[in-house]
Amino acid sequence: MNTRALTGAGLGLRAPHAASVLAQHPRVGWWEAHSENYFGGGEPVAALSRVREHYPVSLHGVGLGLGSLEAPAPDHLKQLRALVARIEPALVSEHLSWNRAGGRYFNDLLPVPRVEGAIEVIAEHIDAVQNALGRPLLIENVSAYVAFNDELCTEADMLAQLVARTGCGVLLDVNNLHVNALNLGIDPLEEVARLPRDCVGEIHVAGFEWLDAIAIDSHGAPVCDAVWSLLDAALDRFGPTPVLLERDTNLPPLDALLVEYGLLEQRVATADTRLRSARGAMHEAAPC
């Protein structure tokens, strides 16, 4: 089974497209699947295994709730470990969010209040997951619609500290940065600059929608110009990095989605060319 590292552009694998992917084998660099969709076994995970025979795959989790006070649920972690063993993904990622409290589960990616003690709790949970899986996680920044009072650091600062404490990496979602800029007034370029240059293992782009003057991270629209520009800035800072196009709602036919994927491919290729040119110029300018 091919376990090579991800490179270039990838596309989110969604259930309505799985049959077409297996029948057509479109020219896509790699696919990313939501881990929890395959915990039940049966045909979904069998189809993902068949996709994995032809493409590299990344697994992206939405349910561990690393920012909850409670440790990750043992059954959830057990199923994730089994899926990772079966699929052998190139990367495994999860969100910097919480989803459980007082015995209740919230089906959402709730932002973590960046208060005293939060980093220690999350680092402990990341360590537990990485030890169980025998590999590092990538942790994704999330969209937020409210800000908390008296926070001690920015989200990028928290991610940088978690990288230093646990050895995890970062999955940088530049659409989430743009949504937070619109809703909360953060400077997305400052957040990009706060992350260590060597910590980002994957980047996401997606589209958002407006609802009552609030930017909603719906993954239900094409990528906007501002997010494309943030992607350029991120690639300039972090260098060649695998980039995923996400689409979860208002899902178009696969052929239509592949058109937007082609735009991402072009953007990534242009960034690679720009980086090589910059490096070449620096080499020529270096003193003997």
Score class of each variant (00 low, 15 high):
M1W: 10
A5R: 11
G12E: 09
A18V: 14
A23R: 12
Q24L: 15
H34R: 10
G42T: 10
E43L: 13
V45Q: 06
S49R: 15
R50S: 14
R52D: 12
S58W: 09
G61N: 09
V62G: 06
G63I: 06
G65W: 00
L66W: 00
G67Y: 00
S68R: 02
L69T: 12
A71I: 05
A71G: 11
A73P: 08
P74I: 07
P74E: 10
D75E: 15
H76D: 15
L77W: 08
V84D: 07
A85C: 08
I87N: 07
A90F: 04
S93D: 06
L96Q: 01
S97P: 05
S97C: 15
N99S: 15
R100D: 14
R104Y: 11
F106R: 12
P111G: 09
V112P: 00
V112E: 00
V112Q: 03
G117D: 04
E120L: 05
V121T: 13
V121G: 08
I122N: 02
I122W: 00
H125W: 04
I126H: 02
I126C: 03
A128H: 11
Q130E: 10
N131L: 10
L133W: 07
R135V: 08
L137F: 05
V142P: 03
V142R: 02
S143T: 09
S143F: 00
A144S: 14
A144E: 10
A144N: 07
N149M: 11
N149E: 15
E155F: 00
D157P: 05
L162S: 00
V163L: 01
A164Q: 14
R165T: 03
T166Y: 03
V170Q: 01
L171D: 00
L171M: 05
V174N: 00
V174C: 02
V179D: 01
A181N: 08
N183M: 02
D187W: 01
E191T: 01
A193D: 15
L195S: 09
C199Q: 06
I203F: 01
H204V: 09
W210S: 12
D212F: 06
I214Q: 15
S218N: 07
G220P: 02
G220W: 02
G220H: 03
C224V: 14
D225Q: 13
D225S: 13
A226G: 07
W228T: 08
L231T: 12
L231Y: 04
R237V: 11
R237E: 09
F238H: 10
P242E: 03
N250C: 13
D255A: 15
A256T: 13
L257T: 08
Q266R: 10
R267A: 14
V268I: 13
V268M: 02
V268S: 10
V268A: 05
A269L: 12
T273A: 14
R274E: 04
S277F: 06
S277P: 01
A278C: 09
G280C: 11
G280E: 13
A281H: 10
E284S: 12
C288Q: 14
